[in-house]
Amino acid sequence: MLIVALVLAVIGLAALVMAVVTSNELIAWVCIAASVIGVVLLIVDALRDRSKSDAGEAAEEDAVPDATDDVEDYPDEAPVAADYDEAPVAAERADEDPPRS
């Protein structure tokens, strides 16, 4: 439809030039008619495109599952090493004497 509107715009421009050069009223009306038809086609095309995008978004929303169902809650802060049982064991090993060679 956009190509048809473009062709009508070219026809309207050519008719406008011809109407001005020849001072012919009939050619001027052809220019006006071509312009009006082109604008109507552009409006219809824009409305169809909008309705297709709205329908596509609605179908996409129906197809996508709710993402909040699979969310895991992670703590905001990293755990502190003193909270684990392994920390005292590591501290005891550090207190031991190093092996003698």
Rank of each mutant, 00 (worst) to 15 (best):
I37L: 07
S35R: 03
V36M: 05
T68G: 05
A78V: 10
D95G: 06
E77H: 13
V39P: 00
T68Y: 08
E92I: 12
V30N: 00
I37A: 05
Y84E: 13
D62I: 11
A34R: 00
V89T: 08
A94D: 15
D69H: 15
C31V: 02
D62R: 10
E72I: 14
C31Q: 02
I32P: 04
L41Q: 06
S35V: 11
E72R: 05
I27S: 06
V89Y: 14
D66T: 05
A59S: 07
A91L: 07
S53H: 08
P65D: 12
S53D: 14
P88F: 06
A87N: 15
D70Q: 12
L42S: 01
V36D: 00
T68S: 09
A90S: 15
D76A: 09
P75H: 03
I37Q: 00
D54Q: 14
V80S: 09
A87G: 13
E60R: 08
A34G: 02
P88C: 10
A33P: 00
A94V: 13
D66M: 02
A55P: 03
A91F: 03
D49K: 13
D97V: 06
A34H: 00
R93I: 11
D70W: 09
D83G: 07
I27P: 01
D85P: 11
P65S: 07
A67D: 12
A63L: 08
D97S: 11
S35G: 10
P88V: 04
A87P: 04
D69Q: 11
D54M: 07
A78N: 12
A58G: 04
K52N: 10
E96F: 11
G38E: 00
V64R: 09
Y74L: 13
R93T: 08
A33K: 01
T68Q: 05
D69W: 11
I37C: 01
R50N: 09
L47N: 04
E57Y: 08
I37S: 05
